[in-house]
């Protein structure tokens, strides 16, 4: 009779290696999935276009966005020299929309990223430590959660006073509890998985386990959730500006432009609708992209 020792090498190495291409890694697979998804490509392209137009506004804009003209007020879309017409003070719409994108996108992205960082930290802390710490953190945040986002943003901005940095702060505070909630629930799920137990068996410290095993698996889902918040943030920021709590005129910002053009809606509806159309397009694109990323990241066994 053969002993196990003699049999070992032959028996063990017969596991037939599947003829698969070399590993692309997790993000490689996600990227490949995204590239195959027409919705992701479309949304991504629209966003890219908007971002390029905003970032390179000084180079691309055909006119000075602050230059007013009393004669050329409210020209319709397609007027000579003014591709998208002019606003109520005769300023070039296309240039203003491009410059406005800079602030609008900034107000969409910055609060979400700040909330993403702060919220993930608190969420992982609450989720991993659990018990009383979790209860205290989550109940405190529930208080914030009780108010609708718009109301909360308005209240905080109102208290802090108008201005760009105050609206950024207000929006960040609005999003932190939402991010914490997601991060906490994902962490709680991950914490119960066997690989965390296996890591504990190896005597790893809580910090090491969080850094290597928890963070990587929590960041993904939270990031996807945060991408979904980008559109909300943009709309809220526009809303704040619309109410006069955000950016001040004559600064071009989509929400503010929508507000000031409001009175022109019967005279020149197309021009008046343009900032709204852009807000709509950008937020839809953010949402669709977030959806695509979410499904691409869902790699089943």
């Amino acid at each position: 009779m053969k002993t196990y020792m003699e049999l070992a090498p032959s028996a063990a190495l017969t596991e037939e290696p599947p003829a698969a291409p070399p590993s692309r890694g997790y993000w490689g697979v996600v990227w490949q999935q995204l590239r195959r998804d027409p919705m992701a490509i479309a949304a991504g392209s629209v966003l890219l276009l908007i971002v390029i137009a905003a970032v390179f506004a000084p180079l691309l804009a055909p006119a000075d966005p602050y230059k007013t003209s009393m004669i050329k007020r409210l020209l319709p879309v397609g007027s000579e020299g003014f591709l998208l017409g002019t606003d109520e003070l005769g300023r070039d719409m296309i240039s203003r929309l491009m410059y406005g994108g800079r602030i609008s996108l900034l107000m969409g992205v910055v609060p979400v990223f700040a909330a993403f960082g702060i919220g993930t930290f608190i969420g992982i802390l609450a989720g991993y430590v659990g018990g009383k710490v979790n209860m205290v953190i989550m109940r405190v945040l529930d208080v914030f959660y009780a108010f609708p986002s718009v109301l909360l943003a308005v209240a905080i901005s109102g208290a802090l006073g108008p201005g760009l940095s105050n609206s950024l702060l207000a929006l960040t505070l609005v999003f932190v509890p939402q991010v914490v909630r997601v991060a906490e629930s994902v962490t709680t799920q991950v914490r119960q998985l066997d690989y965390i137990e296996a890591a504990r068996m190896s005597g790893a410290s809580a910090f090491s386990i969080i850094r290597v095993h928890v963070l990587g698996n929590v960041l993904g889902p939270v990031f996807v959730y945060a991408t979904g918040l980008l559109s909300v943030s943009m709309i809220l920021a526009s809303g704040l500006s619309f109410l006069g709590l955000g950016v001040k005129p004559p600064e071009p910002e989509w929400g503010l432009m929508l507000n000031t053009l409001r009175s022109a809606i019967y005279m020149n509806p197309w021009v008046a609708a343009l900032p709204g159309v852009l807000i709509f397009l950008t937020s839809i694109a953010f949402n669709l992209l977030a959806d695509s990323v979410r499904s691409a990241m869902d790699i089943r066994r």
Binding site: M1, Y4, E15
Partner: peptide
């Protein structure tokens, strides 16, 4: 005794 295992895994 060692088991008479079928080597490899089911195909893709």
């Amino acid at each position: 005794k060692p088991l008479q295992a079928i080597p490899g895994a089911p195909p893709d």
